[in-house]
Design a binder for these strands. Structure first.
Lengths: 213, 213
DNA sequence: AACGGCCGGTGACAAAAGTCACCTGATGTC
DNA sequence: GACATCAGGTGACTTTTGTCACCGGCCGTT
């Protein structure tokens, strides 16, 4: 993978933006990179920018008061972080954690620019609206899964989501990681995974899980 | 309570809107009333308008696949329904239920008007952004309560929220209603309420609960 | 090769939550 | 007043989930 410039990323990932908007962004955004495993955002942090993901995948977690973490969704190249928009707009902090799972790169759009972009560029306006919409829907799915389903169904939902976002049949996840993401415990997850294996839905190996179907 | 006109409601509840925006809205919104207990929106319904609440209180539920309902939050006069915005914008349906708990009135802003309002009136733009922001935060709190807390804490959280939104110390709720809202069962709720009473946090009566503290 | 750390498996038990059956007392209706 | 209905209480039991203790294998480091 070559080292892309801001301009490259914007032209590759945001083809729907009108040329003037792209130029505006190229002139004003700043780029920042993170190593796999690093935290992009932490509880209590204040945003002064809207964050666009241009490389790598980022896991977004909700943090509980006692340090628990609960996985909500992935951000991928071309996505904006809805929470950074919200927090940036109101200068508020939020109990959110973002963790890079690959080496990742983000672009930061200064909040001072947001109102102008919204007014001048319809494609930006639609992009922001679509970001809110899709994240809202995603949160509702998360609520569904914990409000209406047992841990076994949540686990299935979780594995399916992982498979989609990593687009792989082999998930490099330990039972402990899954347990943490679902705010459960390793033993319980191990047992449920074993049942799924017995039902022929997955196959278990050391350090990874193979999705069947 | 006198029968208010669209104009009355807009001038009373949306004082932050600039005069031209108020006039625009008055000219284009339609008003609709619901009796207590009626459903404002149902699973599968398509919105062709953004909904503003101007009278009464509305409970918003998420619906599960098997007809379960899970209470998320209240909408009050002056609020916009973020979900109606989202669904209207994309012409999608959503598994959402809204129930009027008082006699309620809403204003419906045609989606065709939305882009224009967003561009022309900064106060509308901020109102929409603030609506997304506050509902997003509210959903995150809901996720917190079900992801990190036991049913006992969720019940406390629920009662507190009810107290705030009904601004009363006496909650006219049956144990069955609470159980339904929390997607639990009456017996369990009864037992937990009894424990809260023993701890001196509430007092139980037939058909209502008194909040102490 | 020896060590320690990480990964996963397992049995026994405890706690939380849901379910079932049945009861009591209040309330409203005819 | 008789009756049905509704709100709520209670005990016994099951299921689900979490916890504890401990084991064994795999793997990297030295």
């Amino acid at each position: 993978m070559t080292q892309n410039s801001i301009s490259d990323y914007i032209h590759e990932l945001f083809t729907q933006f009108e040329p003037a908007l792209k130029e505006k962004l190229i002139a004003h955004v700043t780029m920042k990179s993170f190593k796999a495993g690093e935290l992009l955002m932490q509880t209590g942090q204040y945003f002064r920018s809207t964050v666009l993901i241009v490389k790598g995948r980022v896991k977004l977690y909700r943090e509980g008061t006692d340090g628990d973490e609960f996985f909500m969704y992935y951000l991928e190249p071309g996505d904006a972080c809805a929470l950074s928009m919200i927090c940036a707009a109101k200068q508020e902090s939020s109990k959110i954690m973002g963790k890079a799972i690959d080496d990742s790169t983000i672009l930061m759009v200064p909040i001072a620019l947001m109102d102008e972009l919204m007014k001048l560029y319809p494609s930006w306006y639609y992009f922001v609206m679509e970001t809110y919409r899709s994240r809202f829907e995603e949160l509702l799915l998360v609520i569904d899964s914990i409000a209406f389903n047992g841990l076994d169904e949540r686990l299935g939902f979780y594995l399916k989501k992982q498979g989609e976002h990593l687009n792989a049949k082999q998930l490099n996840l330990t039972h402990q990681e899954i347990a943490t993401d679902l705010n459960s415990s390793r033993e319980v997850i191990s047992r449920l995974l074993k049942k799924m294996e017995q039902r022929g839905e997955i196959r278990l190996y050391r350090n990874y899980i193979e999705l069947l179907n």
